[in-house]
Each structure stands twice: as C-alpha cells, then as structure tokens.
Design a protein around this nucleic acid. Structure first.
Lengths: 231, 231
DNA sequence: CTTTTACTTTAGACGCATCTAATCCGTGGT
DNA sequence: ACCACGGATTAGATGCGTCTAAAGTAAAAG
C-alpha cells in the first residue's frame, strides 16, 4: 500500500546510501528527486511513521531493513525492465532509463516473473548495475572503485556506468566505454579529467571528472588457474 | 497533461458510448469506474472545462472529437499491451486485462511504436477488440450483433468478447468460445440462457444471458467468389 | 565563546481526486 | 396538474503531495 512517490523516495535514499553511505541528508534527497527540502522533510516523516526509515532530526535518514527491501523490489523492477527493453524491444542503452522509471511502479509480480524468465534470470542490467534477486537480498557490489579514483597506468575493466543521463550514455557508448570493456588510464589532467585507452583498438578518450566519478571499475580478471579449465 | 484518472474517465465514457450510445449518464460512469456519482460529476466538470466532453446538466455527457481521440489513444495502448502480453510473455487470455490497465497510462509513444512493430501492427487484440490505428481514427465495428440477440439456428462467428471479467474469460476459453470460432445457436431458454454448438467438435455450451450479451458475433464468411482466388 | 552561515524543519496554503450529506431537477404516476 | 421518487448536483470535508515563507538548529569561523 505504498504510493509511487514513496517508492521513489525509498529508491532515491537507497541509491544515495550506496553512493555516500548513510545517513542521507534532506537536501541530497531533494536535489536527487527534484523536490524542495520541506517536501522531503514531510515525506520522510511519513516514511518514518511507516517504519521504512530511521531518522534523527536535523541529522539525516537511513533505510530500515523493511525500507531497503522495498527499494530493492523497485530497483529489481527498474533493472529488469531496462534489460528487457534493450534485449527484446530494441531500445538503446540511453533510452531505457526513463521508460523503466515510468513503468517500475506499475508492473505486477507476475509481470516481473515473466520478464525475468524471458531474460533468463539476468544478474546485471545493460549499465552493469546488479539486478536484485527475487528474494530481495541486498546485492554485493564490493570490489569496485570509481574511475575518478584510479591512477595513471591502471588497467581496469568497466563494471558499471550511471544510467541517469542519456547524453552521457550516448557519449560513452560512442566512446566504447561499456560494461565489460578493458581500459587503461593514460593520463589524469587538472580538474580530474581522465584519459583512457579503450579496448582493443587503442582509441584514447578523455572523460571529465563528473563522468569518471560515475563509472565503476574492477581489476581485470586474473587468468586464475583455479577456476578456469585448461584449454 | 491529462492525469491517469482523467484518461480512465474518457476511456469509460467511450466504452459506454459504444455500448449504449450517447449521452452517457453520471451513474453509469460511476458504476463502471467504481466511484460515487458526486465524484463523477466533479470530474466530468473538469473534463468539460478542458473541452474533452460536451455536457448538458442533469442530462448526460458525450465525448468531443478531442476527448474521443484521447480515449482511442488509451485504448490503443491497452489493446496493444494485451496482445503483447499474450504473444510475447506467455500471458493467458484472462490475465492480461488488469496488467494492461495498470500500464496503459505509463508507456511512451516510443514504447507504443515498438510494441506495435514487434507484433506486426495487429488490428485486433486477443479478445477480438479492434486496436485503434496509430492515427487514432475511430475503428468501425459495424456488422456485429450481440449473441443474446440471435435466434435458434443461427450460424455465427465469434468476433469479440468482453475483456473485463477474468472468470468469464476462463470459462469461455474452456468452452472454446474464442474470437474466430464458428458457433451455432441450438437453444434459447427462459431468462435468455443461450445454448450453442461450438466449433468442429460439436460440443454444446450454455451461456447465461449476462455473458451472451457481452459476446459480439458476425455472420460466417461467405465463400465469396469475388475475393478468393480459385484453388 | 560568540557569531555567522548553511541546512532543516514548522507553518500555512493549494490543487487533485475522493467521499458523505444535503439539496435540487425532471419525469412518470395518479 | 401535482407530487413523489430516482438520479444529479452542490456543499463541505479529507488525505496526499507539493510549494513558499518563516523560524529553528548545528556546526564552522572568527
């Protein structure tokens, strides 16, 4: 019996907690959702009444376990939709976010099941974001760092990119910076501008700090002798 | 800039106009949508202000051309979704209505286009209801009559069934009464109970008047010599 | 330790969609 | 021609989500 709007707040708080850790401030939520701070204060009060968040006045807010579960449910819907639109309806990387945002609150459990089945129970969406499992246990995204924190010479694999800005996605897609691609940091200029050599064709691309900050990377896979069967 | 709710009212008025012809009464709308009459009066006032309906106080309401266009757009979404869910996500006949109702207000033009393309620009949904074309010209459903108005001995083809009651759809599916099926009326009992022989296997099924009234039928296709190429 | 500043919250209002209770047509029966 | 009754509308209230303006608080700066 939660409204769409409440779900949006919970999703926003979850996302911000992932980015900055709890507690999350009123103004950050307001900025993220495009609302005014008083609006957020009032909504957060209602979420607290329902036991979905813990709050300390003038301090900030944090999801309860229950609130986190709701956020994960919505996020599962969102990311399954993104994957489905890409795979089965010919959407591009940059178009899926808004459509998924509009639909995520309105699909049934049945729809969720069937979409997941049609996709073969995927674990990540097209942007590399983990799709929460059906039992809504929090996904583990440790082992990732922001590209903006890396150093010249690092060889890395792109793990996730932000799905929020279509223009940015358009650019990254053009640049070949997509989840799974191997990159090497070749330069870091003032103001955090990061230059990387992309993939196999050796192209170089420069990315402003604001973009590099939203790209999550992991170390390249070791040719780990234990898990890989010998050729 | 219309709310979901307004779209629902316009769709309801359109449907009622199709069933009973204009004007449509406040209480019929209220009943159809599960609202109280004062609520409907108030909403109808707003629709009138926006030029979507014509109204004469204490008489009834009728869609303007503009209002009809909106209704057709929503109906196009609804029926495309019903077709898509059936074809591509393995939904049964009886499950699609509620899901389509929930999603119809939230899909983009882009989504509509891609779903229509994936289906090959279909002209009817799984219940036989015509899908308004992309240019939103009113579909023509002349030439159909209600099964409840037919007579013993009539041979007919099922054209449309109501999509609103899942239990009824379950039953009709079980009975083999689906769009395209040929049936023959074998008996009409008191209270309008209609018995029909269904399809090729000669099964007989009795349908209460309340159900027969929602089934639209057309005469069987003549083996029309003019349009069919000789074998 | 005091003051300033940045951020948060309270106060009060608005529009939407809804309801119940009360009033108001319009028409069919006498 | 009257009146009663069914259906429609007005009146007024509620909850939600939002805003602006005003007041409050905490932490950094002096």
């Amino acid at each position: 019996m939660l409204s769409d709007v409440m779900e949006d707040y919970l999703k926003a708080i979850y996302t911000l907690q992932m980015e900055q850790g709890p507690p999350v401030s009123t103004s950050d939520i307001a900025e993220y959702l495009g609302k005014t701070p008083p609006t957020v204060t009032s909504m957060v009060g209602k979420l607290e009444d329902r036991g979905l968040v813990d709050r300390e006045k003038y301090k900030g807010v944090e999801l309860t376990t229950e609130g986190e579960t709701v956020a994960l449910e919505v996020l599962r819907h969102h990311r399954l939709l993104e994957a489905y639109l890409t795979e089965h309806l010919d959407y591009s990387w940059s178009e899926v976010h808004d459509e998924a945002d509009a639909l995520e609150h309105h699909i049934s459990e049945e729809f969720e099941k069937r979409v997941a089945a049609a996709l073969g129970e995927p674990e990540v969406d097209p942007h590399g974001d983990p799709i929460p499992s059906a039992d809504l246990t929090p996904p583990d995204s440790s082992g990732l760092s922001a590209l903006s924190e890396c150093e010249v010479g690092d060889r890395l694999v792109v793990a996730r990119v932000s799905d929020r800005d279509p223009a940015e996605l358009e650019y990254l897609s053009e640049a070949g910076v997509t989840p799974g691609t191997t990159i090497e940091v070749t330069d870091i200029a003032p103001f955090g501008m990061v230059t990387v050599r992309v993939g196999d064709d050796g192209r170089e691309q420069s990315l402003p700090e604001s973009v590099a900050r939203t790209i999550r990377v992991r170390p390249p896979d070791e040719p780990s002798s234990e898990e890989v069967s010998p050729a």
